[in-house]
Amino acid sequence: SSQSQGISSSSTSTMPNSSQSSHSSSGTLSSLETVSTQELYSIPEDQEPEDQEPEEPTPAPWARLWALQDGFANLECVNDNYWFGRDKSCEYCFDEPLLKRTDKYRTYSKKHFRIFREVGPKNSYIAYIEDHSGNGTFVNTELVGKGKRRPLNNNSEIALSLSRNKVFVFFDLTVDDQSVYPKALRDEYIMSKTLGSGACGEVKLAFERKTCKKVAIKIISKRKFAIGSAREADPALNVETEIEILKKLNHPCIIKIKNFFDAEDYYIVLELMEGGELFDKVVGNKRLKEATCKLYFYQMLLAVQYLHENGIIHRDLKPENVLLSSQEEDCLIKITDFGHSKILGETSLMRTLCGTPTYLAPEVLVSVGTAGYNRAVDCWSLGVILFICLSGYPPFSEHRTQVSLKDQITSGKYNFIPEVWAEVSEKALDLVKKLLVVDPKARFTTEEALRHPWLQDEDMKRKFQDLLSEENESTALPQVLAQPSTSRKRPREGEAEGAETTKRPAVCAAVL
């Protein structure tokens, strides 16, 4: 046999249950609850290399294929790409003598399909299967379609040439079993990697079954959420508030809700932002270029202005709740996480202390139980975000031990490091100062900020419009641009040419 590394010779191994799959997660993409704000000051410096380099560890398999027929071997997927077919160049070659004697062998292509993985959001991997055969590759009886790919989820059954000719079961060793999710959700989405997690739940990458488009699904544990919100009269209202707010909003710089499922837990389906959180971008770069800050901040102002015009105060604006559309420097941003939002009543007064301390406005800290506050709290938070983006460190921090965090904020005395700000323009610093004003009545509004000289930049605004146009074009394009080929190089076993392929839609398939 010419099988590559990772293939075992026996096809009769006992199949494990899916609970053996491991679970991976990374930083929070968007969480309903406010958790302790991640610290920006503690960015690790590059460490000196050791005298002796450690040995390379043996790579762990990321997936496993269990053979369902004699003549096929099990495969431990270690590499990122595997070709399957009769050709000797394939990493998994159909060359077992037992297999060659079967009637089905002649229906398999020289290069029938490939399984591979690509880097997705949060640097996690996504597994795909890609059909290159004349007679078809099927996943859970659905045709992939020649020249098309679809994501592979845990426990997928792979069939060759005929939908009933099941050859492998695919085990993704990095994700959960699909069966743990409600059927209504599974009918519409293929669940994938964990993108982030918080005290009350997690955010998962998923794929729409009909279109193969990526989405983010925010899962909120009702049990954990009820415990964490025990002081509230009705904890469920917080989730329902977020859903109702998101459904009503329609702005290019605000995250869109696509679906909602109320089962044992809450499942909020949101558009996916491939670039992750602004927080991670700031930490990764230490600070952002001023031109990049301007492009992002302009969009934040437009989003918050839209919220305020619609009578909504976000109340928890922070870099973790600003998501980026891509890994590119120039990209769209979207505001997310409306769990603490407040729809303005007639009095415009709110007395609930919520939000993240580092970003809270002075009037929030001094008015607990005594007075109210209004939309100006969001403008203060925007000032803190702009400060961080321009400088790479927070204006107020618990680690300045000589003054408490509350006193720093209520006095408006931010930590100004001259040598850092020497590289920032006077106009940018002036806008920061106009937003970090203790008196909410004297603080800049979103309208005033948008009129500030720093943002009178036609090149930046043109760039934003171009990015918007690109997004609109990409969302308007159909996901499947061509029909699967019906040509046949070899006959199917026991049926006429093209008899099955043309009847089945290529579900969740995307043209390369």
Rank of each mutant, 00 (worst) to 15 (best):
I243Y: 06
I243Q: 00
K247R: 09
H251F: 01
C253H: 10
C253T: 05
I257F: 04
K258T: 07
K258E: 11
N259E: 09
N259R: 07
F261A: 10
D262Y: 13
A263N: 09
E264P: 08
Y266L: 14
Y267N: 13
Y267A: 02
Y267T: 04
I268E: 15
I268N: 14
I268V: 13
G275D: 03
E277Y: 06
F279T: 06
N285G: 09
K289L: 11
A291C: 15
L295Y: 07
Y296F: 14
F297P: 00
V304P: 06
Q305T: 13
Q305A: 11
Y306R: 07
Y306K: 06
L307D: 00
G311D: 13
R315P: 03
D316G: 00
N321R: 00
V322W: 04
L324V: 09
S325Q: 06
D330H: 11
D330L: 05
D330S: 05
C331L: 08
F338V: 02
H340S: 02
S341C: 01
L344Q: 04
G345L: 08
T347H: 09
S348L: 14
R351C: 14
G355I: 05
T358D: 04
Y359C: 04
V366M: 04
V366L: 10
S367M: 15
T370A: 11
T370G: 06
N374R: 06
N374A: 08
R375G: 10
R375V: 11
V377T: 03
V377F: 00
D378G: 01
D378M: 00
C379I: 02
C379W: 13
S381Y: 01
I385W: 02
L386H: 07
L386R: 01
C389V: 07
P395T: 03
H399R: 11
R400T: 09
Q408S: 12
T410S: 03
S411P: 07
K413Q: 14
Y414C: 14
Y414V: 00
N415R: 05
E426M: 01
L429E: 07
K433Y: 02
K434R: 14
E448S: 00
L450M: 02
L450V: 05
M460Y: 00
F464V: 08
E473L: 04
E473Q: 13
S474R: 07
T475Q: 11
T475D: 12
A476M: 04
P478V: 03
P478F: 02
L481A: 09
A482Y: 05
P484D: 13
P484C: 08
S485F: 08
S485N: 04
S487V: 08
P491R: 01
E495A: 11
E497Q: 15
E497D: 08
E497T: 12
E500K: 11
E500P: 08
T501P: 15
T502R: 07
P505G: 00
A509E: 10
